[in-house]
């Protein structure tokens, strides 16, 4: 069973994020990490590999520095990696990203493609569905459980009320929710081994991408302006003296929240 895990390098969730005021692109000088949702995707792929054998390949689109975080996925146990990296890709929007990933995926062989549900910086959660559509593969998102016999998938898709169970033949594209598993912690063997695993960097030309569909220029959506949200300010602050519950209730009543 050959599995491709699509991962992204994101700005650390704890870091304050800034946009470059000229390009409206994310300032990536702050600490970067492997998108936390993608760790679940990698783990799920490794578990399936342990069951069925095959290869786990990591696919990432991002700056060359993203290789560091791709190595983390390799340290967890993935076999090899492809990094799509090209200055022309910078500024790609959801659809541009999906197009580039889909084109790369078309050149690879796979039974299953796994995404993390969303990234913690772009936060659109739309790339996986768009990629599935562009590949013409069935798509199941937000999975809280996944099993496979090698030819079909049995999954649970998380809902607010509980879950919906689906059966789906492979090949397919899925995205997994936080909590579907406990991502493994890389062992020393994994960390040392990851340094030697193949990591191929491909650029736009290598993939034969249509420049009009990618990058800032090819984006179908554009940022007109961005401003810092008006800072929330501190309102009333009181020490609890036994009457605070009443005071909260008064506040809620005054703002017609009750």
């Amino acid at each position: 069973m050959n599995i491709i895990v699509c991962v992204k390098q994101v700005v650390d969730t704890e870091a304050e994020k800034r946009l470059d005021p000229t390009s409206w692109r994310l300032d990536r000088t702050v600490p970067n990490i492997l998108n936390p949702y993608d760790e679940y995707a990698v783990e799920e792929a490794l578990k399936l590999k342990e069951q069925h054998g095959g290869q786990v390949t990591v696919l990432c689109m991002g700056p060359e520095g993203a290789a560091d975080d791709v190595r983390k996925a390799l340290a967890m146990g993935a076999d090899d990696a492809v990094l799509i990296s090209d200055a022309a890709l910078a500024g790609s929007d959801v659809m541009g990203t999906a197009y580039a990933l889909a084109e790369a995926l078309k050149t690879m062989s796979y039974d299953l493609i796994i995404f993390g549900n969303r990234s913690t910086d772009g936060e659109t959660g739309c790339v996986p569905a768009a990629v599935a559509e562009l590949l013409g593969r069935p798509f199941l998102s937000t999975l809280s459980k996944m099993e496979s016999d090698g030819t079909t998938l049995k999954v649970h898709r998380e809902t607010d009320l509980g879950y919906v169970a689906y059966d789906c033949p492979l090949p397919a594209v899925v995205s997994v929710a936080k909590g579907i598993n406990e991502p493994r912690y890389p062992t020393m063997k994994g960390i040392l081994g990851a340094k030697k695993k193949p990591l191929e960097v491909k650029d736009v030309a290598a993939l034969g991408l249509d420049i009009s569909k990618i990058g800032l220029g090819g984006a179908k959506t554009k940022v007109l302006s961005a401003r810092t949200a008006p800072p929330r300010t501190a309102g009333t602050k009181i020490e609890d003296d036994g009457s605070s519950a009443q005071k909260i209730a008064d506040f809620l009543a005054a703002e017609k929240l009750l």
Partner: peptide, 22 residues
Amino acid sequence: SADGRDVAAACAARLGTGLLVD
């Protein structure tokens, strides 16, 4: 929402339009 994102992204991809998210 989870459903909304899935359908919106697929529709945008199928019809080749831009998608403004959230």
